[in-house]
Structure formats: structure tokens, C-alpha cells
Design a protein around this nucleic acid. Structure first.
Lengths: 211, 211
DNA sequence: ACCTGAACACCGTTCAAGT
DNA sequence: ACCTGAACACCGTTCAAGT
């Protein structure tokens, strides 16, 4: 009987996820989710104790979508695969992905994802004292990058910001002025993410065979 | 007349900020903010076009609280001062700080903060082609760390997670098992942040005198 | 076991009006 | 110029009841 219950839970999470991506996170309400399943709002409370609980269910589902570890790959390929996976999940679910940073997520799925990174770093040869910190360093940056991308923190919202934006009153800000040539170019976000991963890789390498 | 208007705007932002930190972000409503100022909800709409607009005002105020650049310091001290400043703002306003990652923030205050980092990196000797990307790398990590800390992503919410938490069914997850000794220790978050800044500093240094 | 209905105490926002 | 009042179309959630 337990299985039917979790099956229905998954249906509800799917409906909520679809609704949030179609109409935005603000349009996600107990009432709208219930409506999409032809249910009364109160029916959902048999499966989730509150709306926050449902949001945690969504976050859990996102963790599930991350790639599984593949021990046949080298540690830096594994790390890159995980990072790319997170970024892909973000681009697939841009409306709800930012919840990853705001809801603690100590669900089994979240712990499992962290554990995967622990294993990669340990197998790479990172001394155990540093593993948990480096895991937080890497995951914080990767999730932060993915959220920044989908939430518009990087590109400045819907409208594409031109270099001329950086004015205070009449005069240009000094840093923006000195970078006017570079800031005028389009950013290749795939390439930027790759370069960032190179930097992260070097950080990890700096901890190898040091102890 | 313009000055009175912005003065009242600041009052409203202050009230909203105080209310959010006292009672939580969920308790922040146009009605509750208005009530705290002995106003009708509708009075706020003379100063902010919508609740989202008010939230942007809050984010702008947070940017304002960041330390100003001090050109007499070395580039890595400047970078560290900015990073510490961001983390302090987060600990001062834990309820609203996560908005920094979710609201695009192309306000003048936000651009000014980015510009400060541009100047630090340029003066450090980072080649102009890399400056914008490295700025995003650094700011993404620093803000991400600060949010993770205050939102409980690192510590697993209110309850302190013990090592024994990492169970799937009956068996321990492999990475957690191999790190059981280290995961049992308390984390010194100040020290962790410092170590992360050391890593970031090395990343920045790797771009110096390369071109 | 699973769902519905009515009710409570809230929301953001529009439109009109007051001084 | 600045604010209020009433109204509209929503919320999450509790409690009781239905089958």
C-alpha cells in the first residue's frame, strides 16, 4: 500500500513541476496543482503536509535527475560530468532550480548526491581532511553558476545589458570603462563554464599528493 | 521634492527589512509592511510599483552595505575585504540575503559593486579578457557560500546532522562511511571560508603575468 | 483509504475618492 | 502630493464530513 502512496506523490510532484515551468513559480499553488490533477486542494494534504513539504519534494526530484557516478571515468571527468549534469538540470527546470539553494535539502537524494562527490574526491586522492570542504566549494560554485545563469543574475534579466548601461549619473564607472571592449562582446556561457571547471580542477589538483 | 520621495522609499525598505528579519520572509507582505508604518497597504504603491519592486529595493539596500573599495590595500586584501563584507551582510540579514541570487539586480548599486571587483582584478594584473569571467567566478562562489551558510544548505537546517544521518535503508553511503571520522568533527566556518579564499586567490594568481 | 466542502484568516493589486 | 476605502480574485490550511 505504501507503493501506491509514493506513486501518487510522484504524480503530484510532476504536476507541480510542470506547472511551475509553464506558468512560473509564482503560479504554483496548492490550488493550481490540485486543479491540474482534477482534485480538490485538500486532497494534496494526504501526501504532503504543507506547500513547503511539496517544494521539498520537487527539490528531491531534481537531485534524482543528476547523473549517477561512473567509476570507470577519471576523477576529473566524473567531476565534470556531475557539473554538466547540474547545469543541464538547471536549464531544464529554470523556474524551480533556484530552490536548491534556499531549501536545506537534507533528503536522502541530496545526501546521495553529496556522497557521490565525496567518493570522486577521495578516489582522486584528496586528503580526507579536505574532502568535505572541497565538496562544498565545488558544489556551491556549480549550483551558484547554474542558478545565476537561469535566474538572470549574469545576463541582467530579460533585456540584454549593453556596455553603455554602466553609468552613474553621467560618468561611466571606472572598471566598466576600462573593460568596455571586452564587455561589448557576447559571452559564450558554455565556454565560460568550461574555463571555470578548469580552474576548479586546478584547485582540486593542488590538494593531491600534498599529504 | 524628489529627495523626500527617496527618503520615504528608504523608510519603507528599512521597515520591510526589519520585518523580514524579525518574522521571516514569508511574513513580509505589503499589508504587514504598511501596518508597521501605520499606513494603508495602498500608500506603498506610491513608492514601489509592486511587491517585487520593493524586494528589488531591499536587494539594492544590501548592495549598499558592502564595503567600499580601498585602493591603498593590496589586491588580495581588497578581494578578501569584499568577500568578508558580503558574508557579514549575509549574517546580518539572513532572511533576505538569499534574494541576491534570485533577483537579477541590475540596479546601479549592484553594477557599482561589480565595478569595484573589476577594478581590483584589473589592478592586480588579470588580463582584461579574463576579468569579467573571474569576477563572476569569485562573486558567484562568495555569494553562494554566504547563502548556503544562512539558508542551512551546509549545516542541514536547524537540527545538527550527525554522521549517522547518511543511511540509505540500512547501509551507510560509501563516501560518508570513508569520511566518518572527519564528518564527526564540528566545522569551523570562519576557517573554511578563509581556506576557500586562499583557493580563490590562487585561481586569480594563475592569471597574473600570464599575458 | 482517499477525497470533498465550507470556512478562516490571509494575500497583491485596481479603481475611485478624499484632502 | 500623499493617502484611504472598498472591492476583486486569489492564497494556505483546519475541521468536519462523505464513500
Amino acid at each position: 500500500v505504501r507503493k501506491l502512496k509514493t506513486a501518487r506523490q510522484a504524480e503530484i510532484v510532476d504536476a507541480a513541476l510542470a506547472l511551475a515551468e509553464e506558468k512560473g513559480l509564482d503560479a504554483l499553488s496548492m490550488r493550481s496543482v490540485a486543479g491540474r490533477l482534477d482534485l480538490t486542494p485538500m486532497a494534496l494534504y494526504g501526501y504532503f503536509r504543507s506547500k513547503d513539504d511539496l517544494l521539498d519534494g520537487i527539490v528531491g526530484h531534481l537531485m534524482t535527475q543528476l547523473p549517477h557516478p561512473d567509476p570507470t571515468l577519471s576523477w576529473n571527468l566524473q567531476l565534470r560530468r556531475l557539473a554538466h549534469g547540474a547545469r543541464e538540470v538547471a536549464s531544464q527546470y529554470p523556474a524551480v532550480f533556484p530552490l536548491l539553494f534556499v531549501r536545506p535539502s537534507v533528503t536522502p537524494d541530496a545526501v546521495r548526491a553529496v556522497d557521490g562527490l565525496y567518493v570522486v574526491l577521495l578516489d582522486a586522492g584528496v586528503p580526507p581532511v579536505h574532502v568535505a570542504r572541497v565538496e562544498r566549494l565545488v558544489s556551491t560554485f556549480v549550483i551558484g553558476f547554474a542558478i545565476s545563469e537561469v535566474s538572470g543574475r549574469f545576463s541582467g534579466g530579460p533585456a540584454n545589458p549593453r556596455a553603455g548601461r554602466a553609468l552613474i549619473g553621467d560618468e561611466m564607472l571606472p572598471g566598466h570603462a576600462r573593460l568596455s571592449v571586452q564587455l561589448g562582446r557576447e559571452v559564450d556561457w558554455d565556454a565560460e563554464f568550461e574555463a571555470d571547471l578548469d580552474d576548479l580542477q586546478r584547485v582540486v589538483e593542488s590538494y593531491l599528493d600534498g599529504a
